[in-house]
Write a protein that binds this DNA or RNA. Structure first.
Lengths: 361, 361
DNA sequence: TCTGCCTTTGCCAGCGCTTCCAGGTGCAGG
DNA sequence: CCTGCACCTGGAAGCGCTGGCAAAGGCAGA
């Protein structure tokens, strides 16, 4: 048996320079090349308006920086300047198309403002959200956005507040908590749907929802309240709670149809559950909307592409995102949230498609 | 007109302490409280195995740290230690359910390894990808993952490589480039679909795809190659290129059906386009699969929930993600990629559902 | 009792950047 | 010719952390 020969082609992985040992050029390097000091480099590159630099020096520094491909070390700069240009985003979900779209929108708009999104994915798990707050540390992100409600995330919320940080919540319902919040007007959205269905002659309604999360809870309460206002009888059997996903919607509708008193219309707490319910209805041989009407909430893109296309309520994602970022910028600037701004509500819009129709018979 | 009175309730926003001025406790603070030096605090909290700290000191430091709620400043630590525990992820898309699922999976697995994902959203725009590389700086992220192919992202790629960083690409097709890549075996996937359709008696096939991106390109080439191997005639009209989304799939199928020579089966380059195509077929009054078979690629969750459910090929997301992270960890550790590991391919699986059936007539 | 070693801890430098402060130059006015 | 004032620029400190080096203390062996 031959003793193992050390590899001979180039530096071995364990001995050679590590990939990550690579250091970019520093301000000192640029300074040396330009024949100035590091502080001058910093001033030139930051346009420090207070002090003027002579045009020639300015030019020389820029040339040197360009030649070396220099860009300031983001960590060092942040450590010094207290700004990271990063926004932490803790999202309840990311695979849900509604959230995906929201994240995408936020990301685009944030970039336009010179910020990046650091995505913390809570996976519908409050303990992970808490863990996230540790990572999306006050000192790592200039601000934090919370997207979607998490059950029992009180601890996470407290932790964030303890750090006295710029933080804003989205789509978590009008929580009584101390975090400024932006919501779709969930009650109004449900109202639009109920009016629509009532006008179509539906009197037996059911609601399927995905748990007791803040905004979902609001929709459920609004459903109950407005049904009763309209004189509709709603029994506990008419409300079904299941997982907040396609399978959950599917199961919930199957169960509803096994009950003795079948609804003529089913409202889902969100589009994803509605798509699951739609599939279930079709699998059961029901015609939609001839036999049963189905509605969603959110208006995800897929809602246009089912057969039949889904009647739903559109959440104003663009507007909410824009407002959230504008607001967060001000918090980051140091403005304290005024009382009046603790909660904002943006109106949704009814989108009528083919999954709703006149009540049968 | 009264002169405006300065607000009098509490410190005004512009004068008061800024929200972001808040400083957490530092190692010095802990040291002072525990009656030791800052370096001792550092050693205790980092379990620096080399030097032992007396149990009593250890205890005192931990108590002090707990009391102050101290955690080391991530930026300072990273600046010193050269590790940020952050992985940059530049994704071609985030709203596409396949990518959303992939991102979610990566995020979960990365967290288990002690890393966070910083999401850079390229929005199918190569110039944004380049911009991302600047943000997801070598010094900001320990490593970078590229998810999905971007047309003409050569500049971005070069920039990343110039920084000699740990970087890995996913789902971009077997590019000849110098970046290690992990791919689904797209050719094999297409082969499975074609065999399936051929067995069902289909002889007139069409392909709709969303552009000339790497992995999509591979699928298209495989479609062409295997069709010809099977003796099928494929004309340019049988291949339609449109946007890589639901609308694109819809339009592509409508156009296909306007052609004189209608296919009996349509293969889409991914599930999203397939869903659009499915909707179009149903809108045109076609029965699926009686009149036309439709297949996708990816196996997103929604594929199970259309009516009829979509026959497709499942990409092994879990496995690819796991392999990508394991590999990236080693790159971050400093191992240089070996020649053999420049490209890995993971086999996909055929998932037969209801959108495919025997060829008509 | 003294020497020497080992354990435990503190000091200090420095990661790369920004910014206050002070110093140096040039030019105009006295 | 000297003084003063702009205007530019360099020096140095320090953000919070880590790690090498060395010193202080304790104890055992001679």
């Amino acid at each position: 048996m031959h003793p193992e020969q050390p590899a001979d082609r180039g530096p071995s992985a364990s001995r050679g320079p590590r990939l990550t040992d690579h250091k970019g050029p520093t301000a000192r390097d640029v300074a040396r090349l330009a024949g100035v000091s590091a502080s001058t480099v910093s001033r030139v590159l930051n346009d420090s308006g207070t002090t003027l630099i002579s045009p020639s020096t300015c030019e020389r520094v820029r040339a040197a920086a360009a030649e070396l491909g220099y860009s300031p070390h983001p960590l060092a700069r942040a450590l010094r300047g207290k700004h990271t240009q990063l926004i932490g985003l803790i999202a309840r979900e990311i695979e849900d198309p509604f959230f995906a779209h929201f994240i995408s929108t936020l990301s685009t708009q944030a970039r336009a403002l010179g910020y990046q999104i650091v995505l913390g994915h809570a996976q519908s798990d409050p303990s992970q959200a808490l863990q996230m707050t540790a990572v999306l540390d006050a000192r790592h992100c200039d601000g934090v956005l919370l997207l979607g409600d998490l059950r029992d995330d009180g601890a996470a919320t407290e932790e964030i507040l303890r750090q006295r940080r710029a933080v804003l919540a989205l789509c978590r319902g009008q929580s009584p908590g101390p975090i400024p919040t932006i919501n779709t007007d969930n009650r109004h959205g449900m109202r639009l749907l109920l009016d629509h269905l009532y006008t179509l002659g539906h009197r037996r309604l059911a609601f399927i929802n995905g748990g007791w999360l803040g905004d979902i809870h609001e929709r459920r309460e609004a459903f109950l309240e407005y049904s009763q206002l309209s004189g509709l009888e709603v029994t506990p059997d008419d409300i079904r709670t299941d997982s907040n996903n396609l399978d959950g919607g599917y199961r919930a509708l199957v169960e509803l149809m096994q009950a003795p008193r079948r609804p003529t219309a089913v409202l889902a707490s969100d589009d994803v559950m509605a798509l699951g319910a739609l599939k279930a209805a079709l699998d059961l041989g029901l015609r939609v909307p001839a036999d049963i009407s189905i509605t969603g909430f959110d208006d995800i893109e897929m809602a246009r592409f089912t057969s039949p296309a889904l009647t739903t309520v559109r959440q104003p994602v663009e507007a909410m995102s824009r407002q959230a970022l504008a607001w967060l910028m001000r918090l980051i600037q140091g403005e304290l949230p005024s009382e009046a701004e603790q909660a904002a509500t943006v109106p949704p819009a009814l989108v009528i498609r083919q999954s709703t129709g006149p009540a049968p018979r």
